[in-house]
Design a protein around this nucleic acid. Structure first.
Lengths: 145, 145
DNA sequence: GGTAAATTAATTGTGCACAATGCAATGAAT
DNA sequence: ATTCATTGCATTGTGCACAATTAATTTACC
């Protein structure tokens, strides 16, 4: 019986799953110094750009739901990096706003992308191709079915 | 100040993280019928090939440690898909062996790869390129530093 | 205006994922 | 043979990730 299709290395999901885990793991030693986890870091990335947004919009940006974000945002609030406040205009909405302490953290994060880039020694062309294919993959999966 | 490097979309990690999550999520409805999670599924993929191996070798194959595998394997054992038995030759080692029930499950899993392929409509060339780049990425990260 | 439907968060429960620790068994070196 | 380091697994604790449910509010419809 031909079961090549059921071999680990013949499924796209596996190298994708391993590469994502390995790359996220590369951030840990750098993020430890900022007292952030990886998911907290990408939440702060959005906040450094947007300053203020709703939990829903943050979830849309990060592809995460409230079950993940609510406790995560409470931890970031406890660290003093942001504030959560329920909207007056719409009581269902919670607005997230970065604090000055959270803004300051950005300076320490500036070196992270280059430190990561230096330990992911792919040539520029390969990197661009990988970006393109990953975004294409995310795109086609969002509309398929 | 130029902070393009700190934008979410300019970091490889983010599309990689999202694509992996999204693709793994695509398995869920298919795996629910086999009463398997994604991680349990890739463990079974190895067992369908190897029949029997140690926890350590499984961990090497899946890039997972005992803190993840020990409870996961106990759950698979409780479902009757495998047996865990401590090695007589070396008492530190635990051998994992697939059961007939676990073997049977393979038949039901055969359709999964094609079902996934059909909802990941990348052209063959793009798919091959993506494989190659992901394995390259995993390779360079394993030896870097 | 009153009811139904939709929206937004929060909560609960399960299962990874991994760091850190502990421990027993093994192997190596003297 | 005794010491010492290493190996393989288990345990504990923290933090995602997501399904399912609940609750509060808002919007749409008649």
């Amino acid at each position: 019986m031909n079961d090549d299709a059921l071999k680990l290395e013949n499924q796209l999901c596996f190298p994708l799953y391993v590469a994502a885990k390995d790359l996220v793991g590369r951030y840990k030693p750098l993020l430890d110094r900022l007292d952030l986890t990886y998911t907290q870091y990408i939440a702060m990335l959005v906040l450094w750009q947007e300053k203020s947004l709703t939990v829903k919009d943050l979830g849309d940006a990060l592809h995460l739901d409230s079950g993940t974000l609510t406790p995560l945002l409470k931890r970031l609030e406890a660290k003093g990096y942001l504030e959560r406040r329920r909207s007056l205009a719409d009581e269902r909405v919670v607005n997230i706003t970065i604090t000055p302490t959270g803004e300051d953290l950005k300076q320490e994060a500036l070196e992270i992308p280059e430190r990561i880039a230096s330990c992911v020694p792919l040539e520029h062309e390969d990197l661009q191709t990988l970006y393109r294919l990953l975004y294409k993959l995310i795109g086609v999966m969002n509309c398929a079915d």
